[in-house]
Write a protein that binds this DNA or RNA. Structure first.
Lengths: 193, 193
DNA sequence: TATGAGTGAGACAGGTCTGTATCACTCTGG
DNA sequence: CCAGAGTGATACAGACCTGTCTCACTCATA
């Protein structure tokens, strides 16, 4: 393997390791030393790839956002109708809430820990939230007027974010079930207009 | 004023000051030194009232939860029907999202920063979330069967939590409006059964 | 085989963190 | 007036933080 390819792999390994620690312990509570120890990497290796901890956090968020986005892309391809695509998003969350190392939404946590509007981490997290909303808008526009799609996307987004909060306090199963039913009801009502 | 009354007032002052800093900057990012400087209090005064920073955080959360709870109590007294009581909760959130120093939900932030299930801070935040849910359940049980009240309360709770997340990324106005409309629709549908 | 990009290990600087200790002071209640 | 609860100021311990620096080393490639 080429030298630069090894370096790139190591970079990805740092991101993946940091992701696991940030997810479990939070951003401020996770020190650089813990990351490099867990990743089994020299401190300078990390600082050569990322100029600061904040920029590492941004990279972790972007990486996670892209992975999530790709997963939803695949699910959307497998579904045919807009209703099925939306249902697939709820399915994904149901599985997520049930996964053994569920620790809540990393982007919600980032918004919580870096509340300043102009902070790069805050903006990266905001971007992901807007992307998900935009994704649902696009799906919904295939089966209702644009202005309705806008509003329905907001409602579905709130249900999902709220379900994620409830999942964190161990009420995920009931929450996502109620959210899914409500969403189905709204979509059915829209369709019959 | 009695000596102990002054001490009690100072204790409340520390809690109120810490609340402002935690809300704005987060829990980990707010050091003890910043709190005592802002409260204009000696470090030992703080540590005499609170054995540790974590216990101060718990006290801040409980204090805030109680204040919020009392506000909702007053609003509920002013309303007559369950529908009005629920609407009042949405009103409260609309005003909150618009207030100049809105920084998101302190309890959501606490869940984000202290993710461990057995941590006292996590449990204090969980307690508040469950209380709000319970409050809505009680209101709804006056106008629908218990099992429905349970599910509708979960839906309304998710809408509110989701709207709070959206408010944090500057979409609070549209979010709470959609949430309110959806809630009204659900309550109307329940009533006509 | 020689070069040099990338690395591991760890010391280090300078700051911040929580929590403890000390001491002189104020001011209320008896 | 005086005892003592409560306080302000400050130094301190010990840990941890981010980020910089050095130096010897590995190993793919030219």
């Amino acid at each position: 393997m080429a030298r630069s390819a090894i370096a790139a792999a190591k970079r990805r390994h740092i991101v993946a390791t940091a992701y696991g620690l940030f997810k479990r312990d939070g951003f401020h509570a996770t020190g650089i030393d813990k990351i490099i120890a867990e990743a089994d990497v020299a401190k300078m290796t990390m600082y050569r790839h990322f100029p600061s901890k904040d920029e590492l956090i941004v990279e972790v968020l972007n990486w996670r956002a892209q992975r999530f986005s790709h997963q939803l892309d695949r699910l959307a391809e497998a579904a045919s109708t807009p209703q099925e695509k939306i249902a697939a998003i709820f399915d994904w969350h149901e599985r997520w809430f049930d996964s053994p190392d569920f620790h809540g939404c990393l982007f919600q946590h980032a918004l919580a820990e870096f509340g300043e509007q102009h902070h790069a981490v805050f903006q990266a997290a905001t971007r992901q939230k807007r992307d998900i909303q935009q994704r649902m808008r696009s799906i919904l526009k295939q089966s209702m007027p644009d202005s309705r799609a806008e509003q329905v996307a907001t409602i579905l987004f709130m249900l999902i974010e709220g379900a994620t909060v409830l999942a964190k306090i161990r009420q995920g199963k009931a929450a996502i079930a109620s959210a899914r039913r409500t969403a189905a009801g709204i979509l059915a009502a829209e369709a019959s207009q």
